[in-house]
Design a protein around this nucleic acid. Structure first.
Lengths: 213, 213
DNA sequence: CTGCTTGTAGTCAAGTTTGACTAGCGAGGG
DNA sequence: CCCTCGCTAGTCAAACTTGACTACAAGCAG
């Protein structure tokens, strides 16, 4: 499960056709540089790699309109779209303690039907429950939990995270069931990418890592 | 902040002298393969890299006593010990939304004084608070939070994680203040590594990734 | 005593991530 | 007019991670 791939596919897909810098800006707009490893190097690498694997189609394109080196534009292929949906579904369902995966899934969930998202999130809650049961059974010695010493705090922390994660997911399910947000097939979708030249209202003000000095 | 480095340094340090497979087993004992990227490749790589950097001293040692290729034993150097403490402190203090970092910090916290750990955890709570303030101010548009659409759920999720994380940390502080666990200088330390040949009671039963088939 | 499985110990190539670096263009100051 | 700054757009080497693979020894089934 690569978060970067999911995010990049999602960004390219919403644009129809996008170059690397656009993707990079979208991810910043989503705040992805804060909660995932969405750095320029990773983004450009993911684009190239997925183009090589046929998930994206690369158009070698004109020298950029606004200075800088020539840029390549990408379009998502049918295969890429399939992979995209597979990744979104997985991100919403699987509990792997990686918060970035869920975050990315949340950003992309409106590309699915409301009903399916609800189903996936229900699954998520169940899978958290199963995980919790497995862990607590496994790491609870017969002679009481004291055996583990401070190492037990690690287990305690996991379990706490799982519980609060499940609780949050249930609340999200209620919000979505209650009609929040606009999902696939429900009319005008929420615009989650920046148009060409549009400025990012959530720009961090931090310098781009690519900038020298 | 490399979790692997922290874990590996911690394991080698507790043993005094350890070879790769021992470290690998300790990390499994701690459950680290579940909540971090502690795979054999990463572990051996970290050992070699840190040896190259002078954090560990490598003894090219006899062919293994129990089959398999000859093994190298490692000892932590003074520089490595410094780095170890730096990493533990950082892991306990910094809030970077990476649960594996905190987990590793918890596993190693007893190598510090009780008072210092309490101080570090208090800082952690404060730093979560600051982070929360920054995020909520930043990502709350003037015209109400509805602006963000479903993207707002990502922020919501972060903030929820931060809040429950702070709550858990406060509870941990209380447990430690209340006398739980044995910290540095408080007598017989909890044995957190497996002796040579000791079996791991928490072995996953899953096959080692290194095993063929 | 042959072949098969299990356990010990580690290597390797391929893929990914990181952080620093390059390079073109326009705006604005001096 | 020249020079620097900041923005656009991307590259690159070095480090790290992954998952599959190697190799040796002991146990044991037939």
């Amino acid at each position: 499960m690569s978060v970067i791939r999911l995010l990049v596919l999602g960004a390219v897909r919403q644009h129809g056709r996008a170059h690397g810098y656009q993707v990079r800006n979208d991810l910043e707009y989503w705040g992805a540089h804060e909660w995932s490893n969405a750095k320029p190097g990773s983004i450009y690498h993911a684009l190239k790699q997925m183009a090589k694997q046929g998930l994206l189609h690369a158009h070698e394109v004109a020298p950029s309109t606004a200075g800088g080196p020539p840029r390549t534009e990408y379009e998502i292929t049918e295969q890429g779209t399939e992979e995209y949906f597979r990744l979104v579904r997985e991100a919403l369902t699987a509990y792997d303690q990686k918060p970035d995966v869920l975050s990315a899934g949340l950003g992309c969930m409106v590309d699915l039907d409301r009903a399916e998202v609800l189903d996936l999130l229900e699954r998520r809650v169940r899978s958290i429950g199963e995980w919790r049961r497995a862990v607590t059974e496994y790491y609870t010695p017969e002679d009481g939990p004291g055996q583990l010493g401070h190492i037990g705090e690690i287990m305690n922390f996991w379990v706490h995270s799982a519980d609060t994660g499940a609780e949050w997911t249930r609340a999200l399910i209620e919000r979505i069931r209650g009609g929040a947000y606009t999902f696939r097939g429900e009319g005008e979708p929420f615009v989650g990418v920046l148009a060409e030249g549009e400025e990012n209202p959530y720009a961090t003000g931090e310098r781009h890592p690519g900038d020298s000095r």
